[in-house]
Design a protein around this nucleic acid. Structure first.
Lengths: 209, 209
DNA sequence: TAATTAACTAACTAGTTAGTTAATTATATA
DNA sequence: TATATAATTAACTAACTAGTTAGTTAATTA
């Protein structure tokens, strides 16, 4: 392997990586193409050479992230023996991913609160795949008499919503913890303890007594 | 009452009202001061005459919204007899407000996913008041032996997160319902039925068996 | 090694946006 | 009724930003 001065794939990957970081941190509008170029140490025009435009780059970034999480969730799902196992895997895999890729929940929340202004179609179907998986787990559980009174859409948002808020507010909560003594903002609970708590609570909530 | 050509208070209120609508719909960055001025039928400079700058206007708008919701929740809380009543009132009042003021959840999500970039301090303390109230309800319930194994921060985000996602995705879900037959996105469940479901499920989740 | 292509850049354009200035109009008050 | 003051505007600027163009340099191939 010769050390190359030019490596298109690596450059492209670098641009995507930095875009992901910046879009997640600052959102679509507040991220400038100039900024992406500077951070990535490439000329701005190169971004237009590789990607159609800013929205096109954004779409690729989102696609990459959403595919990654879907793959992980599916992977974790494969080795499960029961709907309860599957529910646990779903929650913990999602939480773990969101925690390790902490920009992702912010991106997702922002995009949802924009009504998918920037990437309507793709976003949409990616999120649907994830929801469909959980939906099937819950309905299977209900058929088997393990769960009862399930509204999958609400349970899905309960999981996604809770995890996303916990991850996105983590820095804010850390700051709050230093300021006040009275309120416990859970600022040093590790994510795997929290996700275990969420799973156990949702299990209680759904299980037939 | 004479019909005036000039009414500073009314003009100011009009600007705030339209700002709230636009900021909520499009976020801070994507809302332009020109747009606010046009919609409000005033000259842009008037906005700078009344408000320090764009961020100052945004802060006032946010303050107004957050105070309104806090007032409603406190009001509903007053007539409650038990922690379970209080929990029910908290969830349903918040959900009702979010549903009637459907831009608010989007604003909140966006602001949280920005780490409070635009209005750090005020936003912060407004959200804390709301959390403190729920926190006290839950801890009182735990002391009275009604609830068990409560982590208020997680329960708070479970409520806020679920409601916010349901409200912000409502138009998206409606669109999805037309496209596919297989997945039930809860697109025509009325909010008060959903908030009742959320309350009942969270009650089960927290109550001592 | 010459020709061709792929990777990359400097410098620009056209359009947008927050914020300002200096002037104008309406209203209250002396 | 004159005048001060509060409300409002037209017209501007400085800074920024998405996207383009015309060109350069490195790598590949004939």
């Amino acid at each position: 392997m010769s050390k190359q001065k030019r490596d298109a794939e690596a450059t492209k990957a670098k641009i995507i990586e930095n875009s992901m970081m910046l879009f997640s941190k600052n959102g679509f509008d507040a991220t400038t193409v100039d900024e992406i170029a500077n951070v990535s140490d490439v000329n701005k025009a190169l971004i237009y050479y590789y990607f159609k435009n800013k929205a096109g780059l954004y779409e690729i970034v989102m696609n990459e992230v959403l595919s990654a999480i879907y793959t992980k969730v599916i992977e974790a799902n494969k080795i499960c023996k029961s709907p309860i196992d599957e529910l646990e895997a779903f929650i913990k895999t999602y939480a773990d991913f969101a925690n390790k890729q902490p920009y992702f929940p912010a991106l997702l929340l922002r995009e949802l609160s924009d009504n998918g202004a920037h990437i309507p179609q793709m976003m949409f179907s990616s999120m649907r795949r994830l929801f469909k998986l959980l939906s099937e787990i819950l309905q299977r559980g209900e058929k088997e008499g393990i769960f009862n009174n399930v509204i999958p859409m609400v349970i899905h948002f309960m999981i996604i919503g809770t995890v996303n808020l916990l991850v996105t507010t983590a820095p804010l909560r850390k700051k709050a913890a230093q300021m006040t003594d009275e309120i416990n903002t859970c600022s040093d609970c590790p994510m795997d303890e929290i996700s275990d708590y969420i799973f156990k609570k949702i299990k209680i909530m759904l299980e037939v007594k």
